[in-house]
Amino acid sequence: MNVNELIEKAGFKPLNVASGDREISGVYNCDLMSVVMSKGFPGAAWVTIMANINAVAVAALTDMAVIVLAEGAALDEVMIEKAKAQDIHVLQSDKPIFETSLEIYKLINNA
């Protein structure tokens, strides 16, 4: 499943759509940047509440496919600017981290 399909099927709100579509390789959760740096993996859909600029930098450095802000995490204008500059997909979900992650997991695994 790629990011554009995820937007369509899960109904997450796109906050920034990057230029290239990305295949999603799995779901990842964590809100501690140094842990994400080391354990975040290429192609991950990273579900987090960390709606800040550093999250974009970390997603870019680890080659994750998309950031999904759970709990309707507040949109930060500076973050969206950074996401545009770094060309990173950012989506928003109203649900908590677990429900959001489970939904993505089911979609990418056809479960």
């Binding site: 501690l32 940047m33 140094s34 842990v35 740096m37 080391s38 960390m50 800040n52 550093n54 999250a55």
Partner: peptide, 9 residues
């Protein structure tokens, strides 16, 4: 609050 300070850097 920004997600740093895990002491993992």
């Amino acid at each position: 609050a920004l997600g740093f300070g895990a002491g993992m850097g």
